[in-house]
Design a protein around this nucleic acid. Structure first.
Length: 476
RNA sequence: GGUCCCAUCGUCUAAUGGUUAGGACACCACCCUUUCACGGUGGCGAUACGAGUUCGAAUCUCGUUGGGAUCACCA
C-alpha cells in the first residue's frame, strides 16, 4: 500500500514552528517511503477563519521546498481538499454512524452539557438524548428542532493502540467523553472530519501533536464502528518555548515568517526544527531537505518535548550563510545594506568581509551603519595596550598613514595593507600602531567587521582620507 | 481532581545491561590574526530522587518528586 500522509492545518493566519515541524515529519515519512504528501485545509470552525491564511500556508511550504502531491490548489483524486467544501459528506457519514450505533442525535444545548460536567470532580456529561429512540429523535429533527450528533461510546474496558513514537497506549473507555461529531450548524468537528477525511483520502500515517493521544481511542472507535482500518499513528512531542510553556503565538513567540523576516534562512530554520525531537543517530547536524529524505526514520523521533533554542538556530543560520556562494550572499545582503547606506561603497568587498561574520541577515544594518556616518566617539578609543597605541601615538601615525594612503593609486586590500606595513617597518613602529588608529578613525568603533585596510577599500580613497583628516582634527 | 505522557550537561541530543556517559550550541582559555569574526586546540558541564532485579543499571521493575497534555458545538 502506498504511504500517504497529510498536513492538515486550520487557516488561522499563522504558521508556527511546531506546525511546520509536524508538516516536515509528514512530508519526510511520505517521501522516504515513496509516498504522497497531501495538503488539506481544516476550516470547519467558521469563527476562526482568517482571510489570507491559506496563502501563508502555501507560501511557507513552498519556501522550504515541501511540495505537496495533492491539495486544494492542485487538486488530486481525493478532493475536494478543503473541509468546508466537503460539508455534505460529513453529514452523510454522521447519520450513517448513528444507524451503525456509533453515534446518536442530541438535542441538548451546549450550555446544558457544560453545566452538567465538572473537570475537577471528574463528572462527565451524561446525555439524556442517548436513550431517545431513533424514531423519536428523527421526529424531532423533522419538526425542525436543532440537534447535534454525538459519539456513542458503547464499549467498556481498556482501549489499546500502538503509536510509532510512544509505543502501546492504554486508555479506559469510560475516560472517553461522547463528544459532538456534527455541530448544529451542520459542520463536523475536528474529531469527526479528521477521521472521515483520513479514511476517504486513504491516509496511512497520521502524524500530529501528542496532545491528541488521549482522544485517539475515540477516533479508533469511529474507525471500528464504520468497519474501517485505522492508520498508523505517529504522535510527536511538543516544541516548547521553555520547560513550562509551549511555543505559541499568544506568547509572542516567533513564527516561521517572523524568523525569515529577521534574516534567518528558510533552509536553516527547517534544518534546525527537524532536529528538535529527532536525530539521525550520527553526529551530523547539517541537512538539506534532500539529505533528510535519505536519512529520516520516523522510529527515531523522540518522546520528550524539546525547547526551541534561538541561539543554536542562530549558529546554524551562520553555517548556512557561510556555505552560500559569495554571489548569493551578496544578493541577499544588498537590501540590508540599502537600509542604512546611501553613499557609494565597494559593496562587493563589504560582502566578502561580512559573509563569515554574519549569523543573521538582520544584524547587518547595525553592523555597518558606521560606514554611512561615523558616530561621535571618545579619543579614549585610541588607547589600546596590546596595540601599543594611545591618542598621542595615533596623532602621529594617522598623519603618516594619511600621506602614505594619499599616494596609493590602486585601492585594494593587498596593496593598502602592504603599504601600511612597509610604513610601519620604515618608521620602526608595530603594525598595530598604524592599523589600529586607522581603523578607529575610519569607523569610530572599537570593533568592526574587517580591519583597517578592508574598511578603507570599502569606503573608497576619498572618504578614507576625509575620515583620517577628521580624526586628526579631533586629536589636535 | 481523573486519565495519559515525559524525565541524560544551561539547551538540542547519543549511548537498544558492560563506554573514563559521546557529540553539538552556549560559555571560558589558548592558537591563528590589522580589531571583530571565521578556523583550530583544550576546558567547564548531565543520567531528578529512592528502592529493587542483576556479577554488572542512564538503560529493566516499582515508588517518590517535578513537568506537560487532556477532560469544547477549537483544532
Amino acid at each position: 500500500m502506498k504511504v500517504r500522509t497529510r498536513f492538515a492545518p486550520s487557516p488561522t493566519g499563522y504558521m508556527h514552528i511546531g506546525n511546520l515541524r509536524t508538516a516536515l515529519y509528514e512530508y519526510l515519512i511520505a517521501k522516504t517511503n515513496g509516498g504522497d504528501f497531501i495538503l488539506r485545509i481544516e476550516d470547519t470552525d467558521q469563527k476562526r477563519f482568517v482571510e489570507g491564511a491559506e496563502e501563508i500556508i502555501y507560501n511557507t511550504l513552498k519556501r522550504v521546498g515541501m511540495n505537496w502531491d495533492e491539495g486544494p490548489d492542485i487538486g488530486g483524486n481525493y478532493g475536494p481538499y478543503v473541509q468546508s467544501e466537503r460539508k455534505p459528506l460529513y453529514a452523510e457519514y454522521a447519520h450513517k454512524l448513528v444507524e451503525l450505533g456509533g453515534a446518536h442525535y442530541c438535542f441538548c444545548s451546549a450550555k446544558e452539557a457544560d453545566e452538567q460536567k465538572d473537570d475537577e470532580q471528574n463528572i462527565k456529561f451524561k446525555d439524556p438524548c442517548k436513550h431517545l429512540s431513533l424514531e423519536e429523535a428523527r421526529a424531532r429533527i423533522a419538526a425542525g428542532e436543532p440537534y447535534v450528533i454525538r459519539q456513542t461510546v458503547h464499549k467498556t474496558g481498556t482501549s489499546v493502540f500502538h503509536d510509532v513514537v510512544y509505543g502501546d497506549i492504554e486508555i479506559d473507555y469510560d475516560e472517553l467523553d461522547e463528544g459532538v461529531l456534527l455541530k448544529s450548524d451542520g459542520f463536523p468537528t475536528y474529531n469527526f472530519a479528521n477521521v472521515v477525511d483520513d479514511h476517504l483520502m486513504e491516509i496511512t500515517h497520521v502524524v500530529r501533536g501528542n496532545e491528541y493521544i488521549s482522544s485517539t481511542p475515540k477516533y479508533n472507535l469511529i474507525y471500528e464502528d464504520f468497519g474501517w482500518t485505522p492508520p498508523v499513528y505517529v504522535h510527536v512531542p511538543q516544541v516548547m518555548k521553555d520547560a513550562q510553556h509551549k511555543l505559541s503565538k499568544r506568547n509572542g513567540d516567533a513564527s516561521f515568517q517572523d524568523l525569515v523576516a529577521k534574516g534567518f534562512l528558510p533552509e536553516a530554520v527547517l534544518n534546525y526544527i527537524c532536529l528538535l525531537g529527532w536525530n539521525p543517530g550520527t553526529d551530523e547536524e547539517i541537512f538539506s531537505l534532500e539529505d533528510l529524505k535519505k536519512v529520516f526514520k520516523m522510529e527515531r523521533i523522540n518522546k520528550s518535548p524539546a525547547i526551541f533554542d534561538i541561539t543554536k538556530l542562530t549558529w546554524m543560520n551562520g553555517c548556512y550563510i557561510r556555505a552560500l556562494s559569495s554571489e548569493a550572499f551578496h544578493e541577499m545582503a544588498l537590501p540590508y545594506y540599502k537600509q542604512v547606506i546611501t553613499r557609494e561603497l565597494n559593496f562587493k568587498v563589504l560582502s566578502e568581509v561580512l559573509q563569515p561574520r554574519t549569523e543573521v541577515l538582520g544584524q547587518i544594518p547595525e553592523e555597518i551603519k558606521f560606514l554611512e556616518n561615523v558616530a561621535d566617539y571618545s579619543v579614549e578609543l585610541y588607547n589600546n595596550k596590546k596595540m601599543k597605541t594611545d591618542p598621542e601615538v595615533a596623532k602621529k601615525t594617522l598623519a603618516l598613514a594619511y600621506e602614505a594612503l594619499k599616494e596609493q593609486s590602486s585601492w585594494d586590500n593587498d596593496t593598502l595593507f602592504a603599504a601600511l606595513k612597509a610604513l610601519a617597518e620604515k618608521e620602526g613602529l608595530k603594525n598595530g600602531q598604524i592599523l589600529y588608529p586607522v581603523r578607529i578613525a575610519l569607523s569610530g568603533r572599537e570593533t568592526t567587521p574587517g580591519g583597517a585596510t578592508e574598511l578603507a577599500v570599502i569606503l573608497g580613497k576619498e572618504e578614507t582620507l576625509k575620515r583620517i583628516s577628521e580624526a586628526l582634527q579631533k586629536l589636535a
